[in-house]
Structures are given as C-alpha cells and as structure tokens.
C-alpha cells in the first residue's frame, strides 16, 4: 500500500463516517442537557426510510433531509414528553422506540426497497481542494460532509464559548442550580432533545440519500448503538466524539481492506470494536482505582493526566428534574 492509496482509504473513511458524526453529535447534545436518547437505532432507521421516500416522491434531496429531521425530532419528542413531562424512565421509552422504529421502518418502507432514487451530488470545494493531501482528504466529497465539519465546530464553540452553551451544560450537570438562576430547565431539555433527535434523523437520511444510496430493510441497523457507544467513548465532548466517529470509520475501512487477507471473517465481527473500546473507556474512567493510582503521583502531573483521561458523564444524565 503506497501513500496515495492510504490517502484514498482515509478520505473514504472520513466521508463515510459522516452519518455517525451527525448521530453522535445529536446524541451528545441531548445527553449534555441530561436526556439519554436510547432510541438512536430506531430513529436512524425510521428517518432513513422516511427521508428516502420523501426525496423519491418530491425528487428533492432537501425535502428528504427535512422529512428525516422531522421524524428524528418526533421520536425525540416522545422521549422528552415521556421522560420530562410524565417522568417515566427514559431508558424504557427510548429502548422501546429503538425496537419500534426498526420494525416500523421495515413495515412501512416495503414499497421503496431497492428503488433507485436521488442522492446528494458530489461537490469539490474550489481552492481548498487543491491543498496538497488535506484537499484530497477533506474537501473532495459532498456538501453533507462539509456540513458535518461545520456542525462539529459549531457545537464545540456553542458548548464551551457561548452563554447558552454554558446554560445547556449546567442543565445537564446541575439542573437545580440552573433553575435557581432563572433557567427554564424543562423547556431547555425539550429543545435540546429535539435538536439532538433532528440531527439523528439527518444521520438517517445521510445513509439513505448519500452513503448507502437507497433503502433496504434494516440497512442502517446497528449504527444507532454505535453512535451511543461513541458518545461515551468521546466523553460527551463534541471534538472527541467526532474523532471517535472518524476513528470508527477508519477502522471499518481498514477492515474491509483487510478482508482479502483475513479470509472469510465477515465485517460484522469488526463492528464489535466500538463496543469493546466503550467498555474499556468506561472501566478506565468510572472506577475509583484510577484515583487510587493517581494519588501516588505528584499533584502537578496528576491533574493534567486526570483531565485528559477522565471525561465524566453529565451529572444529571437520565435523572428526573422536579421543576414545580
């Protein structure tokens, strides 16, 4: 494998990780506000099917993405309503929706299975595409991929450099304190859960209108769970989460390249990797043993190491908040 071949593989990996970037950033936004959207797998499937059907009916990719975003937001609305307003378990509702969305997408999507439809057109960014290596790597794909770059940066800036972003994080960490300072915790949680859901919907359409071009039953199955794992792997930080998605994309590309040499083991066996990594990261960062180990190191070294490794979950993640 020479250098240019490697660049091609990496460029493909980065592009094909795009749906996962949308999905995992969407999940990150919802979880940062304190709501786990466990329905990701069903949401993505349902949005992929609806988005494709809508684009097919109107012959407009844009309408397809809009429909997919609406489906994603609708699923998120059910979770928000059940979890925030009715104070039921978000895990239970999200899990049921994950299964229901998968079955519903197969059931309703029957007429559009394997029908050719519109796709996102390729578009190379002028000037930027001519940068050596980087141009080929990042700027010779399509508008959706570029949108995902912007999403990553905007989300990061919003989280860590703006007041509303600070408020969003505080709603997920210390809802009572945020409420005491005048924030409407319930409304904010609704808003961010819906935004997160809409992004997951876009991830679905990114599959059916771009990277998998078309709809077959359960074509995106598994990606929702992978997105959930990547959010944990990335420690709820948009940049790290995006890196996690790209890392998985690269792993997948390499796996399909290696297919010829590692004979007959199907690629499914490789999609285990994100889950193994997620568990390892959880083991590494959740236990007390890390603190015990670190307490032997001098303070000066300890702090940066801990900060680099430990990215705790939002403190109020999955917890009911009694605003009234």
């Amino acid at each position: 494998m020479d250098f240019s071949e490697l660049i091609v593989i990496l460029a493909t990996a980065i592009a094909t990780a795009t749906p996962l970037v949308f999905a995992s950033i969407g999940e990150t936004i919802a979880e940062r506000a304190g709501v786990i959207n466990l329905s990701a797998d069903g949401t993505i499937l349902m949005a992929a099917m609806t988005g494709f059907a809508a684009a097919l009916a109107t012959n407009s990719v844009l309408v397809g993405f809009l429909a997919a975003a609406l489906v994603g937001a609708a699923f998120a609305l059910v979770i928000a309503f059940g979890a925030i307003t009715l104070k039921q378990s978000q895990i239970a509702i999200g899990f049921v929706l994950a299964l229901l969305g998968a079955d519903l997408s197969s059931f309703l999507g029957n007429p559009v299975v394997l029908v050719p439809g519109p796709t996102v057109p390729a578009f190379n960014i002028p000037l930027l595409q001519d940068i050596p290596v980087l141009g080929r790597l990042l700027f010779q794909s399509d508008p959706l991929v570029y949108a995902s770059y912007i999403l990553i940066i905007v989300t990061w800036v919003f989280f860590y450099r703006t007041r509303p972003g600070l408020l969003l994080r505080s709603v997920g960490e210390q809802p009572a304190a945020a409420f005491a300072r005048g924030a409407n915790v319930v409304r904010l949680r609704y808003i961010y859960t819906l935004i997160g859901g809409a992004l997951m919907g876009i991830a679905g359409a990114a599959f059916s209108l771009d990277f998998k071009a078309g709809w077959t039953n359960r074509s995106t199955a598994g990606y929702g769970w992978i997105a959930l794992a990547i959010v944990i792997f990335g420690g709820w930080n948009p940049l790290r989460v995006a890196m996690g998605a790209y890392f998985f994309g690269i792993l997948q590309s390499l796996a399909s390249v290696a297919q010829s040499s590692i004979q007959s083991v199907p690629t499914q066996a490789f999609s285990v990797a994100p889950f193994v990594l997620m568990i390892l990261v959880l083991v590494l960062t959740s236990g007390e043993w890390l603190d015990n180990l670190m307490s032997r190191l001098p303070l000066k070294v300890r702090r940066p190491i801990l900060r680099a490794i430990r990215q705790p979950a939002p403190a109020a993640l999955g917890k009911v908040f009694e605003q009234d």
């Binding site: 944990i232 285990v272 193994v276 997620m278 568990i279």
Partner: peptide
C-alpha cells in the same frame, strides 16, 4: 459502570 451501556456493549461482543 452503568449496566445499560455495559450490557448493550457486551451484547455486540
């Protein structure tokens, strides 16, 4: 470690 994520991960493993 949250049993939900550990359990889900181990399903795939």
């Amino acid at each position: 470690i949250n049993e939900i994520f550990a359990g889900l991960g181990m399903n795939f493993v």
